[in-house]
């Protein structure tokens, strides 16, 4: 097992680790800033579904482009496109509310199971057919430091910037939409636009986050920081900022733990966030007693 000090040494010497630290902070920030909205709008399952859909998109990309690797820009584009199509389909169901025959959770359940099934089939077929390079499944599912290419850092930077700018510029609209979608629509806010914009941000964030913390764990980092922020803060804006800080710190702790203990980064990120959540709840309980 490496000594902790060697992490700092490795950080100075290894561009891969530097990229992971940068991308991790940015992804942690993006996930966490969206998470209070995800929690309040009860969209945790949507995030989960989209993360699983990413696996289908990945399988489709690897299958369609012979000799491709999972961190190629073309594969990422196909993955994001695939998830967006599914997100729009699910978004249409959820916008129609009670008017749809299929409930939102059923629609998501179907979409993500089918996507996972498709991904598993296509990736296996591709591996068997040409014996091309395929990273470990564990990396897809629970995250890996090795999947972060140089392009990934720029992608996460663009994503985090988009999330922060949208949340800052449309703060009051997203707040009203989250408070009550019908009320916001009655008052004349462009609720459909906000609905799909938020879904778009969510899809992009989940797909990018899944590269680092894995498909299975990506959605948890869209929930836990929000729960922590909402437990601590009395106003939505404050909860978003607090969650953002929790997100960045937990991703950095996750990368450190991943390197030092040689375990998937996703596991340490989520366990760190869960520990913080339990601590906040315990402190609140003590404060009330």
């Amino acid at each position: 097992m490496a000594e902790p000090v060697s992490y700092w040494q490795a950080l100075q010497d290894t561009p891969l680790l530097q990229r992971a630290v940068g991308a991790g902070a940015l992804v942690g920030l993006a996930c966490a800033c969206l998470s209070p909205f995800v929690v309040l709008r009860r969209m945790a399952f949507v995030g989960d579904g989209m993360a699983h859909a990413a696996f289908g998109g990945l399988g489709l990309g690897l299958f369609l482009i012979a000799g491709s690797r999972s961190d190629d820009a073309s594969i990422q584009a196909i993955t994001i496109g695939f998830c967006l199509v599914l997100a729009i389909a699910v978004g249409r169901v959820s916008r129609r509310g009670g008017q749809s025959r299929i409930s939102e959770d059923s629609a998501i359940g179907i979409a993500f199971s089918v996507a996972m099934a498709l991904g598993a089939m296509l990736i296996t077929l591709r591996q068997r057919g040409e014996g091309q390079y395929a990273p470990s499944w564990e990396g897809y599912l629970f995250g890996s430091l090795l999947t972060i290419g140089a392009g990934q850092v720029w992608l996460t930077l663009a994503l985090a910037a988009a999330v922060v700018v949208v949340l800052f510029v449309l703060h009051k609209e997203l707040m009203y939409y989250t408070y009550d979608e019908n009320l916001a629509e009655v008052s004349g806010l462009p609720v459909s636009f906000l609905h799909y914009l938020f879904l778009l941000l969510l899809v992009l964030t989940v797909v990018v986050a899944a590269r680092i913390v894995g498909i299975v764990l990506a959605s948890a980092s869209l929930v836990l920081p929000g729960l922590i922020g909402l437990a601590v803060c009395k106003r939505l804006g404050e909860a978003v900022v607090f969650a953002g800080v929790v997100g960045v710190l937990s991703y950095e702790i996750g990368l450190y733990g991943s390197y030092v203990w040689n375990v998937p980064p996703g596991s340490v990120v989520i366990l760190a966030q869960f520990a913080a959540f339990v601590a906040v709840l315990a402190l609140r309980r003590l404060g009330k007693a």
Partner: peptide, 15 residues
């Protein structure tokens, strides 16, 4: 919802 009374009433002015 995490908001003060004033925050909620101000929502009426948003649009």
């Amino acid at each position: 919802f995490p908001a003060t009374v004033l925050d909620v009433v101000l929502m009426g002015t948003y649009s």
